[in-house]
Every structure is written in C-alpha cells, then in structure tokens.
Amino acid sequence: MAQATLAELAARCSGIELLALDVDGVLTDGVIELDDDGVESKHFHVRDGLGLALWHRAGKRSAILSGRAAEVVRRRAEELKIGHVAQGLADKGEAFRAMLGELGLDARQVCYVGDDLIDLPVLRAAGLAACPADAVAEVRQSAQVITEAPGGRGAVREVVETILRAQGLWHNLCEPFRVPAM
C-alpha cells in the first residue's frame, strides 16, 4: 500500500490511543553492539524520547513488541514510561492480540511502527501502520506512514507528531516550549 492520502491518514489517526513500537531498527538504528563480556548496547535518539513524553502528556499509551530481549530495552522503556513491554517474541501477531486483550483496545486504536518482516502481521492488523525510511521493502509497501528519518534517528518522533497533528493536539502540546519574542 502506498502512503495514505491526507484524508485517509486523518481518518486512521483519529482513533489512535496506543503507539506500539518495535525496537531494533525503529527506536534504535538497528545496530546491536556486543562487548567482550556479551553486554549488549543500543543507540536511542533523544528526539524519539521527547516525542514519547509528548505522546504520554496527550494522555496516550505506549508499548514495545520486540523480537529480541535486552536489559537495555527494559531500562529505556522504564525511562520513557512505556507501559507495556514484551520482549523475546517469536510471533509478534500473537503478542499483539494478547496485548489488545490486556489493554482493552481494538486494533483500530493502535499505531504500530515496525521495520522488518517479523513486524508485518502487526502492521497489517493495526489501525495505522508506520515505518522508518530505511524499513525493508515489504514493510514500506504495507505502511500508511513512512517517515523521512531512518530508524533510531527520530522516526518515532515523526510518527508521534503525525498522529498528534492529525488529532489536533500537537500545537497545544508544544505551547510550553514556545518562548515569547524579546
């Protein structure tokens, strides 16, 4: 599917209450660093963090559905106040359905951001499918929103801004950051 028209995008965004995210290639640049002791590290972008803070300030919920499991993801999710974290998933579609039941949501209320083949079942089920610019071709074809930024470089922030603008919430959320002219 090509990127949605403005009218289609507005309709899809109107009911979004949960932002569900993959980690590697979405919240991070997809690089997995392992040191000699097997300690894993990842690169997260600060703009994605502020985007999630604004998302939560708007009264919205967030979740992580990750194929890999890593302590650094749990820690970052805690810092960002991401309410639902599921890691080490072999089947993200099954985890998505379980999450919907736990949170009492309909799939149409969820925007999912993924970048690789394992994300396709959730992208196809969610109310709004989004991906970073550098997602694999099959994912880009399934997404209604394709960001300009690659994964781990502000893509999540772009998705948050897109939804909150469509819902008419972005301007007021930015108001505390506006400085009066001197």
Rank of each mutant, 00 (worst) to 15 (best):
residue 143 A to P: 06
residue 74 R to D: 15
residue 70 A to P: 00
residue 91 D to H: 12
residue 19 L to H: 12
residue 22 D to G: 06
residue 96 F to H: 00
residue 25 G to R: 00
residue 87 Q to P: 00
residue 127 G to S: 11
residue 82 I to K: 01
residue 92 K to I: 04
residue 72 V to H: 04
residue 34 L to C: 12
residue 155 A to C: 12
residue 164 L to D: 12
residue 59 G to F: 02
residue 116 D to K: 03
residue 142 S to H: 12
residue 37 D to F: 10
residue 52 L to C: 06
residue 142 S to Q: 13
residue 148 E to A: 15
residue 105 L to D: 14
residue 173 L to D: 14
residue 78 E to R: 15
residue 75 R to S: 13
residue 178 R to G: 09
residue 27 L to F: 08
residue 91 D to T: 06
residue 132 P to G: 03
residue 129 A to W: 01
residue 89 L to P: 06
residue 71 E to D: 13
residue 62 S to L: 06
residue 129 A to I: 00
residue 160 V to G: 04
residue 176 P to I: 09
residue 40 E to Q: 13
residue 137 A to E: 15
residue 104 G to V: 03
residue 46 V to C: 09
residue 99 M to S: 14
residue 66 S to Y: 09
residue 63 A to R: 00
residue 41 S to E: 06
residue 99 M to F: 15
residue 54 L to A: 11
residue 109 Q to N: 09
residue 102 E to P: 07
residue 100 L to F: 10
residue 28 T to R: 05
residue 141 Q to K: 15
residue 106 D to F: 00
residue 54 L to W: 09
residue 142 S to T: 12
residue 82 I to T: 02
residue 100 L to M: 15
residue 66 S to G: 08
residue 52 L to K: 02
residue 9 L to K: 12
residue 13 C to Y: 00
residue 179 V to P: 03
residue 2 A to G: 12
residue 16 I to C: 01
residue 148 E to K: 14
residue 78 E to F: 09
residue 39 V to D: 10
residue 84 H to Q: 11
residue 21 L to D: 01
residue 65 L to R: 01
residue 41 S to G: 05
residue 18 L to G: 05
